[in-house]
């Protein structure tokens, strides 16, 4: 289930990052910072919505995080968000906290790698 794709799916797609770096040039660090800040906010939002057990809100937040992380090449993180979105879509929030924990862990990994990349 949640651990299904851990071996096959990468934490950060370096190809995507390289393209972004080329695209944004000097603005690339800005992008990374924006993503990290917004993501932290997004995780906080997920915590609140899961607590409130309003499935629709969880779904929207997960969906949004899924999209932005995919754009940054954080494929596994995006996949985890998709799972959470799926759960919320069907109203099955009983595993949601567990999923969120995994998301947090994954995000920390991604954040670390992104920071490395910048240096």
């Amino acid at each position: 289930m949640s651990q299904e794709y851990s071996e096959d799916v990468m934490h950060l797609d370096t190809q995507v990052l390289r393209e972004l770096q080329q695209l944004l040039g000097d603005d690339f660090p800005d992008l990374v910072e924006t993503f990290l800040k917004d993501s932290t906010q997004r995780i906080g939002e997920l915590e609140l919505t899961i607590e409130s057990t309003v499935a629709e809100d969880v779904r929207y937040a997960a969906h949004s995080f899924k999209g932005s992380s995919l754009n940054l090449g954080a494929v596994r993180l995006s996949e985890l968000c998709r799972q959470l979105e799926e759960m919320a879509l069907h109203g099955r929030l009983y595993r949601s906290s567990e999923c969120l924990e995994q998301i947090k862990v994954e995000f920390d990994l991604v954040a670390a790698e992104l920071q490395n990349n910048l240096n």
Partner: peptide, 9 residues
């Protein structure tokens, strides 16, 4: 787009 990083890209 409501996502800042997406917008930036």
């Amino acid at each position: 787009d409501d996502n800042r990083s997406d917008r930036m890209i």
